[in-house]
Design a protein around this nucleic acid. Structure first.
Lengths: 226, 226
DNA sequence: GTCTATACACAGATAGAC
DNA sequence: GTCTATCTGTGTATAGAC
């Protein structure tokens, strides 16, 4: 599998994400027609990502968002009752969406080695496709209220747990070496995150997501085999 | 070397950092007596780190900072002429301080393998000692203006370059395998950063900085030797 | 050198026209 | 369903007393 294949084989598209966001998390929308909502949610989300990448969520004003999204101030507030709610919705929608996908993609692969590869690739490809959201979620998580921050941490641990379980299973079967699986999954996760956090760096060096995936797999293989 | 040994052997202490900040970067302080400045800079910096860890720099108000630092609003503004300047000073002071230290600690080690170990340990120990600053610098860099953001990126690349050069030298001497040194130094850097970015996770698992350092060294050794 | 009190701009949020 | 106009609280920054 490579990134191009991933794009073709998966039905993930932006619309699915907004639909998901709507049904799972946007309970307070005051608009009736679904088509209208999806269209405007897309405008709002994309604008938020663009602005926040530049000056952060706290630094973004509702006027900024109004200008960038093309909706009026009043219009914005028919989709969210407060600015904070917008942030929470974005976090939740992405977390549940990504979690669901990672699980679905890897659940039917039995062999730990193959499964680990699949998870690494899927995570990287997903973050490539939805980079603005991944970046936003990572950077703005600490500014949430206590409860939502806790949820975000759980989402972080959830991905790590998927990797951890594969390593444990691989060791049990005698395929992987005995290592500190806790630390390995933590550092592997960090490597996966670096891909969407330092995009400027990898772009400047013309590193493709497939090159990066191959490298990460090779690095951890060297540690877990031979 | 371990963390305890590092603490004893280095003369790094908080006062040195504030002195450094003052002489290198705080050009606009309106106060005369150095002793007073150091004392108050410490209060201001520490308070900033505490508040920003909770709600980010943009989310911190000058009233928050006044309360937390114990200085009055007017008092604060005799150390910085704007809020933005406080952020810039913090970024710069740390970046130059850390860069200077990393270089000084590793420059007299000839052997690439030993040198790499030294750099890994020094970076981790330094980030352990000054975690609040490292966290702040990473998280708030994107909210700087264009020029300062560029400087911050250069600081990130600088550390990576130190690692990169060691890998290249090691390969040249036939001690290390031929690998993609660019990607390796990038991922190694990401592993070093994870230590101060996810402190909550490692603390919960009772992972010590020495354990983490040993692990990182082992992981990359497995890739570069055998 | 540090404080209190205050200016004044701008933020988030809403009411009500269309 | 979306807009414009506006309210009100809070933010940064400063002037001037001590």
């Amino acid at each position: 599998m490579n990134y191009t294949a991933f794009l073709e084989e998966t039905s993930i598209c932006k619309e699915a994400f907004y639909k998901h966001a709507l049904t799972e998390d946007c309970k307070t929308v005051r608009i009736k027609k679904e088509k209208t909502i999806i269209k405007n949610l897309e405008k709002i989300f994309e604008a938020t990502f663009r602005i926040c990448a530049e000056k952060g969520f706290q630094g973004m004003t509702m006027r900024d968002l109004s200008t960038e999204s093309g909706l009026s101030m009043g219009g914005l507030y028919s989709y969210f009752s407060t600015k904070e709610e917008l942030s929470i919705t974005l976090q939740r929608a992405g977390n549940t969406f990504v979690g669901k996908w990672l699980e679905e993609q890897s659940k039917d692969i039995e062999d730990p080695e193959e499964r680990l590869k699949k998870v690494i690739r899927t995570h990287l490809y997903l973050s490539e496709l939805m980079q603005p959201w991944f970046y936003f979620a990572y950077m703005e998580a600490k500014n949430l209220n206590r409860k939502e921050r806790e949820t975000a941490k759980q989402a972080e641990l959830y991905t790590e747990k998927i990797i951890f379980d594969i390593l444990v299973e691989g060791e049990k079967r005698g395929q992987f070496k005995t290592r500190n699986h806790n630390l390995t999954s933590a550092v592997l996760k960090a490597a996966l995150q670096d891909w969407y956090l330092k995009r400027w760096k990898y772009q400047k060096r013309d590193t493709s997501v497939d090159q990066y995936a191959d490298f990460v797999i090779e690095l951890f293989n060297a540690y877990y085999f031979n």
